[in-house]
């Protein structure tokens, strides 16, 4: 592969992925995965290939093991059987290149908003200069409209603001895979819409993230954001019931989705998949 540089376009040091081979292989590949805790089998028989650049949602009832599956991709858990590969490498542990937005924000309560992000960037992107890191932190905080609140501690913020900071922190380290664990589960419906919009904006403004996997139990959220929706069966021994395509071009606005002829059909189909507990 030959590198072509364009000196007239400044390259964001965080977005510099020129070295990466582009290949047709899946970005994330889950093969024959089972996770059991002693005699209890949480998930079993999971096969899933996610292409580079895809946004995939994992949806299912509480306790169906969708977070367990996401943790495997993050490297926070290990499969009992099978393999999880990212970029063709077997996932052995966590890495900032597969960054996670935690369900309960996971901000450190003793650090200010700014420091929470700076510490993460500083730890995950050691090769960058202090100025580059500071500029990066400012950029993501401006993007989620939290720059004015940068000196506050997480305990002084609202739930929506905390989640904004948490999302900004993940984008700040410029991961190629973004893993979202019910990121908007604890915020009200109006804030949630604003956060969805910001997530889409963030991807375009500081867009280095190629592939996103999100755990949710919100059907509308899944339709609005995803290319494909993985519907899981109920646990124990949860598996994949069906993978539903969302044939609406991305990036989308809310009205694109609402006025799309497939929206109602998709919604009904997902509701029927999730509505009855017996496999059909």
């Amino acid at each position: 592969m030959t590198l072509t540089t364009h000196p007239e376009t400044p390259i964001d040091p965080f977005a510099d992925r020129r070295w990466r081979e582009t290949s047709r292989a899946p970005h994330i590949e889950v093969a024959g995965v089972e996770v059991s805790f002693g005699a209890y089998t949480a998930i079993t028989g999971i096969d899933l290939a996610i292409a580079r650049g895809e946004f995939v949602s994992l949806i299912g009832h509480s306790g169906c093991g969708k977070s367990t599956l996401l943790n495997l991709m993050a490297g926070l858990g290990r499969p009992t059987q099978g393999t999880v590969q990212v970029e063709g490498q077997i996932v052995e542990g966590p890495a900032a290149d597969r960054c996670m937005v935690f369900q309960h924000h996971g901000l450190l309560p003793w650090l200010s908003v700014y420091d929470n992000i700076y510490v993460a960037v500083d730890a995950a992107r050691r090769s960058h200069t202090t100025d580059e890191k500071a500029a990066r932190v400012e950029r993501v905080l401006q993007a989620v409209r939290m720059w004015d609140h940068r000196t506050k501690k997480p305990g002084m913020l609202s739930g929506g603001q905390r989640q904004r900071v948490s999302v900004a922190r993940a984008f700040a380290v410029a991961p190629s895979v973004l893993l979202l664990d019910e990121p908007f589960g604890a915020v009200d419906a109006l804030t949630k819409r604003a956060l969805h919009r910001e997530l889409v904006e963030l991807s375009s403004i500081v867009g280095t993230t190629e592939t996103v996997v999100m755990v949710t139990h919100d059907i509308d959220e899944a339709i609005f954001l995803s290319d494909r929706i993985v519907v899981m069966t109920d646990g124990p021994s949860a598996g994949i019931r069906e993978i539903v395509d969302v044939p609406i071009a991305r990036p989308r606005t809310l009205s694109d989705v609402m006025h799309s002829p497939v929206y109602i059909e998709l919604r009904d189909h997902l509701l029927s998949l999730l509505g009855d507990d017996e496999p059909r």
Partner: peptide, 8 residues
């Protein structure tokens, strides 16, 4: 988990 994911 935060410390692990962000490679502290």
């Amino acid at each position: 988990n935060v410390a692990r994911v962000f490679e502290f």
